[in-house]
């Protein structure tokens, strides 16, 4: 496919973000294409989570430009809630709503935000629960689920909005090792269906298998990018080599 034919889903231009005096993002520019699977790696504090969270404006940037699906996030006319309907987000700490059942977690935003009927929302919830492999947990409360199951509910909750792009912020980092696989499997299935995905992760196996492009970040800068085989087998930057030797 020619690069100029592909539609840009996210355009970031010279994005700067400070936390106090700490520069978390230092003039980062990045385009993410429709249907692309992008994995962002890098040491803690490198700015990769901040980058991801700025795509749905959970982090407000200090300078630069972010356009998602043709909508400038910082245009005064932009309704950020409308943009967020199209951008799914999965968190490291799941952030499932503990006072609601699994089904209610998945139907809430459908009815409140998308204004779907109860029946329609419920039908979609059951479809998605089957997809993530836990239809039998529909009436359970989050506290009755394992971490892996909770994260799968969180993925289903995001998918219920029928987003155009899914952001994953270290989705397996809070999980016990034996539960990582079940969450990654759901994400792989999603990738095969052609979802546009941006994933911050330390799971290099997943990155090799799924990613179209891997980005290495450090000090709030994209130091290196390429296909998984380029980046993992032939890293050019010294920091990338060092990071990979520590993590692999």
């Amino acid at each position: 496919m020619q690069a100029n034919e592909r539609r840009k889903m996210v355009e970031m231009k010279d994005v700067v973000k400070y936390f106090g005096s700490l520069k978390a993002l230092d003039r980062v520019s990045l385009d993410i294409y429709d249907g692309e699977k992008m994995v962002i790696i890098g040491p803690s504090g490198s700015g990769k989570s901040t980058l991801l969270r700025s795509i749905n404006r959970l982090e407000e940037i200090n300078a630069g430009r972010i356009v998602v699906d043709g909508i400038d996030l910082y245009d005064p006319k932009t309704d950020i809630n409308k943009v967020r309907e199209e951008v799914g987000m999965v968190f490291q700490s799941f952030n499932i709503f503990p006072h609601k059942t699994v089904t209610e977690n998945i139907t809430l935003a459908q009815t409140v935000v998308r204004k779907r009927s109860k029946e329609e929302a419920l039908k979609r919830a059951m479809e998605l629960l089957r997809k993530v492999g836990i239809p039998e947990k529909n009436n359970s409360y989050p506290s009755q689920l394992s971490g892996g199951q909770q994260q799968r509910v969180a993925i289903a909750r995001s998918l219920a909005m029928d987003p155009k792009i899914m952001l994953f912020d270290e989705p397996t980092s809070a999980l016990d090792p034996e539960m990582i696989g079940e969450v990654l499997d759901v994400m792989k299935k999603l990738a095969l269906e052609g979802m546009t995905m941006v994933v911050v992760t330390h799971e290099m196996g997943f990155a090799r298998e799924v990613a179209d492009r891997v980005i290495f970040m450090d000090y709030g800068v994209i130091l290196e990018e390429g296909t998984p085989s380029q980046l993992f087998n032939h890293p050019t930057h010294e920091r990338t080599k060092q990071f990979l030797s520590q993590i692999l």
Partner: peptide
């Protein structure tokens, strides 16, 4: 209430009141 709850709700497109 943990900050993540608000973030999750907002990420789903809910406004502050919702």
């Amino acid at each position: 209430i943990p900050k993540g709850q608000m973030e999750a709700a907002r990420s789903l497109g809910m406004n502050k009141t919702q």
